[in-house]
Amino acid sequence: MLGLEPEDLDGHSIEELSDYLDAGRRPPNRAIDESARCQNALDALERLRNITPALLASDLAAEPEPQESWIQGILGSIALDARAGRRIPITATIADADLGITEGAVRGLIRAAESSLPGVVVGRCTLDGDVTEPGAEIRVSVELSVPYGADIPETVDRLRGEITQRIAAHTTLNLSGVDVAVQDVQYAPNRSEERL
């Protein structure tokens, strides 16, 4: 970005200046303190940090109340995830080992895949198939909410890949597919729309 590259900030990056500001400008860094460009950038960062809480409060106030049915659906899904559910065996190479993971734990790791996609909220999550039978094919089905403006096909593909990787890393389930249904789009008005 123009004005934020190290060559624009006398050899310092905006991340370095942000860290310096986080540390309360301690210990003093003479190269930064004597650079007019760095001082301008630090002042701008400080102003931005001062108005951020007010902007967040304004955004929350402008946000429409979520539909009660959608909230109840999410709470119901969380309650379902909290239950252990079926025991899923984990194939082990050690003789006489009896390893397993609960269905609730698998749903938890599937739900955690949303953390790799900002703004995405995973709602209902189910494991279809006989998860208690080693080697049996299973399908994962998830419902999700995406932020307004997100590229939905790309978001779905990325989430599907993230879920597949997590299942492979933490279980020995024979995953035949991941079905993703977008149930909601979260809309947040931007600044120009609010002024109209």
Rank of each mutant, 00 (worst) to 15 (best):
S77P: 06
A82N: 14
G135N: 05
P147V: 01
D184F: 09
A62Q: 10
N174R: 11
V106W: 01
V122Q: 10
A150E: 00
D8W: 13
P118D: 04
I90P: 00
E193S: 14
A61D: 08
E68T: 12
S116K: 12
S35P: 00
P89K: 01
I14G: 00
A82D: 14
T172C: 07
V182C: 08
E5Q: 13
A57L: 04
G123M: 11
I78H: 06
A105F: 04
M1W: 04
D19G: 14
S69F: 08
L55G: 11
L48Q: 14
A54N: 06
A84M: 07
I163L: 02
G177P: 06
R139D: 10
R30A: 11
R30Q: 14
L144V: 13
T164K: 06
R191A: 05
A61E: 07
G104M: 03
E133N: 10
A61I: 11
A97L: 12
E34D: 06
G76H: 04
L4R: 13
I51V: 14
T126P: 09
V156C: 10
A82I: 10
A136K: 04
L75R: 13
I94T: 13
S141W: 08
P28A: 15
R107L: 02
P189Y: 15
A41G: 05
L21V: 12
P89F: 00
